[in-house]
Design a protein around this nucleic acid. Structure first.
Ligand SMILES: [Mn+2]
Ligand SMILES: [Mn+2]
Ligand SMILES: [Mn+2]
Ligand SMILES: [Mn+2]
Lengths: 147, 147
DNA sequence: AATATAAGTTAGTTGAGACTATATTTTGAT
DNA sequence: ATCAAAATATAGTCTCAACTAACTTATATT
């Protein structure tokens, strides 16, 4: 009997982005307000309210009108997974001198498409490359040529 | 005067997937029929007709009713770019023993989120790693542990 | 040439996820 | 306690991209 596979995407891409923001806000400020979620994701407040209601229906957050949002267990699990993938990507691309800010949009997209084997490969490679500064230098040189 | 930056995504993600399929079909069979596009993308024929009409309006393909589709210059350029990204990803992940089939869905997603610097990094790293079998072996060992 | 089947199109519907404008609730300052 | 401002919610609209069912055109077989 094999373990159940974990699909790449749990909830929609948009929902994963909301969960990521909500977790980050809760960890940074203790709570997640609609206005901050909207600001961080660059969308209108009303859109956030609507999405939060859908996510409540899906069991990803617990929502009470005018009272704010918290993550359910299911929601928090997904949120932590996404944050982990995001961070793994930042760490990986930082090796080559790509800074977090300039590739933010790419990482926001890629993080939703990393099944276990790909995540493991990136993380393992990151670990090994951290001990190969010479190799990294050569890669950086090549990248510079493609600018 | 700097060159115009090329955005990561030209057309929508769905459109990029259509363009990729259309180019592949044209190169493999000489033409791209609605029925084959639909089959390869796993969607209904009627949906393909609808999308092709939108893409014609956007100048990505040239469409005549009942006569099939061809790519415009703009469409072909995007299509080749996507295929290139897809192939780069396959080549990269193959290094670690991940087979194309099992990570197909991930690559289908990631290919839409690779701006120049990320593409260059992946390609440069692939080139260097091809000369580092010992390093690859270590990475593979680590990945095996995460299964 | 007639006709069956395959391919393609149209029409109408759905759902996600965004938007604006408006209404309501909460909160903070007086 | 009152009232203004900030936060949140509702209502209604929009676009994209899918779907099914029904219709039309192309093609292949006899
Ligand atoms: Mn992220
Ligand atoms: Mn994201
Ligand atoms: Mn692809
Ligand atoms: Mn794709």
């Amino acid at each position: 009997m094999s373990k159940a596979i974990t699909p790449t995407l749990r909830g929609t891409r948009a929902q994963e982005d909301y969960l990521e923001q909500i977790l980050t806000l809760i960890e940074n400020k203790g709570y997640a307000r609609v206005v901050d979620i909207a600001h961080n994701l660059g969308i209108a407040q009303a859109s956030v309210t609507g999405m939060i209601q859908r996510m409540d229906a899906d069991g990803l957050v617990a929502y009470e009108k005018y009272r704010g949002v918290i993550l359910t267990e299911a929601g928090e699990e997904i949120a932590r997974e996404i944050v982990r993938r995001h961070e793994s990507l930042v760490e990986f691309f930082a090796l080559f001198g790509l800074d977090e800010h300039s590739i933010y949009d790419d990482i926001e997209g890629i993080e939703h498409h990393m099944s276990q084997p790909i995540l493991a490969a990136i993380q393992a490679l990151t670990g090994e490359l951290e001990r190969q500064p010479a190799l990294l230098e050569r890669v950086k040189k090549k990248i510079a040529g493609c600018a």
